[in-house]
């Protein structure tokens, strides 16, 4: 089965996000004063083959922890969809 994992990587809440801070300021300057916080992250689309959704989930957790994030500063979440060709 072919799956697509839509992975979001963001800085942990405890880690300052300079990009997010800059964008927050910029939005305030553009009169979006109601914005209280912006966190900027990375979005990745990974296509993979796996026997099952369970197996695919396991693989995606593995790659996130090993390479796609740095657990010292980043966290991740993802959504898995089956690709029907």
């Amino acid at each position: 089965m072919e799956f697509q994992a839509k992975i979001n990587v963001t800085l942990k809440d405890s880690v300052l996000d300079p990009q997010g801070k800059a964008v927050t300021h910029a939005l305030h300057a553009l009169h979006y004063e109601s914005v209280s916080d912006v966190r900027i992250g990375k979005y990745m689309e990974v296509r993979l083959e796996a026997e099952s959704a369970v197996k695919a989930t396991e693989l995606v957790h593995g790659m996130c922890e090993e390479l796609l994030t740095n657990p010292v500063i980043e966290k991740y979440s993802f959504e898995l969809v089956e690709v029907v060709s």
Binding site: P18, A22, V72
Partner: peptide, 17 residues
């Protein structure tokens, strides 16, 4: 070296971007 775990911590984008 920090990514490899040989040293603690991590290096982020400069605050000024």
């Amino acid at each position: 070296l920090t990514e490899a775990g040989l040293l603690p911590g991590a290096l982020r984008h400069n605050e000024s971007l």
